[in-house]
Simulated assay, not measured.
Amino acid sequence: MKATIEVKNLQQGYGQKTVLNQINLSLMPGKILALIGPSGSGKTTLVNSIMGMLRPRKGTVRVLGQPVPDRQLLSRIGYMAQTDALYQSLSAQENLAFFGALQGLRKQQLQAQINYAAKIVRLNSSLNQLVKNFSGGMKRRLSLAIALLAVPDLLILDEPTVGIDPELRQHIWLELHHLAAQGKTILLTTHVMEDAEQADQILMIRQGAVIAQGKPQELVKKYQVTSIEEVFLTAGRKQDANSGND
Results as ranks from 00 to 15, higher is better:
residue 158 D to C: 06
residue 78 G to D: 05
residue 33 L to N: 11
residue 57 R to W: 12
residue 153 D to K: 15
residue 24 N to S: 06
residue 237 R to N: 02
residue 214 G to S: 10
residue 46 L to T: 13
residue 222 K to F: 01
residue 41 S to T: 04
residue 213 Q to F: 13
residue 104 G to A: 09
residue 166 P to F: 15
residue 92 A to F: 09
residue 56 P to D: 08
residue 21 N to D: 04
residue 187 L to N: 12
residue 205 I to S: 08
residue 102 L to I: 14
residue 173 W to H: 04
residue 112 A to T: 15
residue 208 G to A: 08
residue 188 L to F: 14
residue 169 R to F: 15
residue 140 R to F: 03
residue 170 Q to T: 15
residue 17 K to V: 14
residue 221 K to N: 12
residue 87 Y to T: 11
residue 224 Q to K: 12
residue 1 M to Y: 14
residue 102 L to D: 07
residue 212 A to E: 03
residue 121 V to N: 12
residue 146 I to F: 00
residue 129 Q to K: 11
residue 92 A to H: 06
residue 146 I to W: 00
residue 196 A to P: 01
residue 78 G to S: 08
residue 193 M to N: 08
residue 135 S to C: 14
residue 221 K to P: 09
residue 70 D to R: 09
residue 185 T to G: 10
residue 108 Q to C: 06
residue 92 A to I: 05
residue 220 V to P: 03
residue 125 S to F: 00
residue 105 L to A: 11
residue 153 D to A: 15
residue 126 S to M: 14
residue 102 L to P: 04
residue 162 V to P: 10
residue 169 R to K: 10
residue 87 Y to N: 09
residue 70 D to Q: 08
residue 242 N to F: 01
residue 101 A to P: 07
residue 112 A to W: 12
residue 98 F to E: 00
residue 215 K to G: 00
residue 100 G to S: 13
residue 26 S to C: 08
residue 114 I to E: 13
residue 50 I to G: 02
residue 145 A to S: 11
residue 75 S to T: 13
residue 205 I to E: 10
residue 146 I to R: 00
residue 112 A to L: 11
residue 126 S to G: 06
residue 133 N to K: 10
residue 237 R to K: 08
residue 246 D to K: 01
residue 151 V to H: 09
residue 160 P to G: 06
residue 56 P to H: 07
residue 86 L to I: 04
residue 85 A to N: 07
residue 158 D to G: 10
residue 184 K to P: 15
residue 67 P to C: 07
